[in-house]
């Protein structure tokens, strides 16, 4: 995988910014509370370190995963730690999740739907911005170790090296109580198309 120029990294940051910005707005409307967003990070991350971004390979997370096909293809993850998932359920559905234990079908379904809404606004704003088709699969949800979940999105990079390009955005809602992460991992051959469509391609 070749290294990107600084301006190309900036373009990818903007890509993350637009997607997550729209998703944060959607979440803010859902919660009826302000939602803050960090500056996106774009970097080539060694496989081993990808899960460290959300607390390590064994950190239990709720993950909503979408495979994106079309002119731009890739994998999109929306990740929440359990504490944040509980915060979301309380904020949205007034479900008291202080009690320890698993999630009911209703709760998982609600989280999946939230993930669906947020990733949907992420991707549709992105497709509008880039002007290329991006068709997402039906979102799949998992409650499992971050390492196990995220490695699923790294396979396309596996055949080329030991690192993947990650466009990462974090948002915070409800006085930092809810922390969500978007990981967009475009397929290696998508970058050229993105740059070209945005007029920065060579």
């Amino acid at each position: 995988m070749k290294n990107f120029e600084a301006f190309e990294i900036d373009v990818l940051k903007e890509v993350g910014n637009i997607g997550a910005g729209h998703a944060a707005t959607a979440l803010s409307k859902l919660l009826d509370k302000p939602v803050d967003m960090d500056v996106p990070k774009v970097s080539l991350v060694p496989f081993e370190e990808v899960a460290d971004r959300v607390g390590g390979a064994e950190q239990v997370v709720i993950a909503v995963f979408l495979r994106v096909e079309g002119e731009v293809s890739g994998n999109l993850f929306f990740l929440l730690k359990e504490q944040s998932a509980k915060g979301l359920l309380e904020g949205l559905l007034s479900i008291d999740k202080n009690a320890a234990g698993g999630y009911s079908e209703l709760e998982l379904s609600a989280l999946s739907e939230i993930g669906n809404i947020l990733t949907g606004s992420y991707l549709s704003s992105l497709a509008d911005f880039i002007g290329l088709t991006m068709s997402p699969s039906v979102p799949a949800i998992a409650l499992d170790m971050a390492g196990a979940v995220l490695s699923y999105g790294l396979m396309q990079y596996g055949e080329m090296g030991d690192a993947a390009l990650l466009i990462e955005t974090t948002f915070l809602g409800n006085q930092q109580e809810i922390e969500g992460h978007f990981f967009l991992i475009p397929d290696p051959d998508s970058f050229k198309k993105i740059f070209k469509a945005l007029g920065v391609g060579s």
């Binding site: 039906v138 799949a140 949800i141 499992d144 196990a148």
Partner: peptide, 16 residues
């Protein structure tokens, strides 16, 4: 060797 997400219309790379 798990299949972490059950997806419809699964491509071969997702059956990894």
């Amino acid at each position: 060797g798990a299949q972490m997400f059950a997806m419809s219309g699964q491509s071969d790379s997702m059956r990894i």
